[in-house]
Amino acid sequence: MRLPTAATTAGSLIGGWQLARRTGNRPLGGVVLAVGGVLAGREWARRTSPAVTAALAATYVGAFGLSHPLAKRIGAWPSVLSTAAFTAAASYAAADRRAPRRATRPSG
Rank of each mutant, 00 (worst) to 15 (best):
P100Q: 15
G30V: 04
T83I: 13
T59G: 11
T104D: 12
R97W: 08
T23P: 03
A103I: 14
V31I: 15
A99L: 15
Y92T: 01
G15L: 02
R22P: 00
S49R: 15
S91N: 15
A103T: 14
T53R: 14
G30K: 07
L13E: 01
A84P: 05
R46F: 00
Y92A: 10
V35A: 12
G15A: 01
E43Q: 13
L70S: 03
P106H: 13
A40C: 04
R73H: 06
G41I: 01
S107H: 11
P27D: 08
S79V: 00
N25E: 13
T48Y: 08
S67E: 10
R73F: 00
R73W: 03
A85E: 07
F86N: 04
G24D: 12
A90N: 03
P78E: 02
Y92Q: 05
P27K: 09
F86W: 12
A40F: 02
A51G: 12
P100E: 14
Y60M: 07
Y60L: 07
A20R: 02
A7V: 08
L66Y: 05
P78S: 01
G75L: 02
G62W: 06
G24Q: 10
G11P: 01
D96H: 03
V32L: 10
P4H: 08
L56A: 09
A93R: 15
A45K: 11
R46H: 10
T83G: 01
R47D: 06
V80C: 02
S12F: 01
H68P: 01
A20E: 06
A63Y: 06
A54Y: 07
T53K: 11
L28H: 04
M1Q: 14
G11S: 05
R26G: 09
S12H: 00
A85F: 04
A40W: 00
P106C: 05
L66E: 03
G24W: 03
G24K: 11
R2T: 13
A40S: 10
P69F: 08
W17L: 04
I14H: 01
E43A: 07
L3T: 10
V31D: 04
D96L: 04
A10R: 02
A88R: 06
R2V: 11
A63D: 06
H68D: 11
T23M: 03
I74M: 15
W44F: 13
A34T: 13
R22I: 02
A94Y: 14
K72E: 12
L33E: 05
